[in-house]
Amino acid sequence: MGFMLGDILESLGQPVGLRHCLVFAALLFAVGLYGVLTRRNAIGILMALELMLNAVNANLVAFWRYGPGPREALNGQVFAVFVITMAAAEAAVGLAIILALFRLRRTVNADEVNLLKG
C-alpha cells in the first residue's frame, strides 16, 4: 500500500500527471454520486447528475491527453463531445418531466412521488 499522505503531498509539487486528473475525476464523480443519493429535490438530483457526467468527461479528456494512443487519435475528445450532447438532451428531457409533474403535483421532491410505493 504505497498510498500514503506523504506521497500525495510530495506529488503536489510534481508536474500534473494522469493520476492527478484521475483522482480529481473520481472525487468529482463521488461528490455527484453523493448528491444523487441524498438530494430530495429532483432538480437537485439532476444537478448532481451533471457533476457525474462532468467527471466522466474529465476522465475522457485526461485519458486522451496522457493516454497510450497517438495524439492524432481523438477518440477521447470525440467521446467527450458526445457526452456533452447527451447531457444537454438529458437535461432537457429531465426538466420537461420535472416541470410537467410540478404542474400536477406542486412538488419537485422525488421522494414525495409516492403514488407508486417502492
Binding site: V36, A110, L116
Partner: peptide, 16 residues
C-alpha cells in the same frame, strides 16, 4: 409522470 420521473432519474444515474 411519476413513473417517467423515476425512470428518468434512475436511468440517467445508471447511464452515468
Amino acid at each position: 409522470l411519476e413513473a417517467a420521473l423515476k425512470y428518468f432519474l434512475i436511468g440517467a444515474v445508471s447511464s452515468a
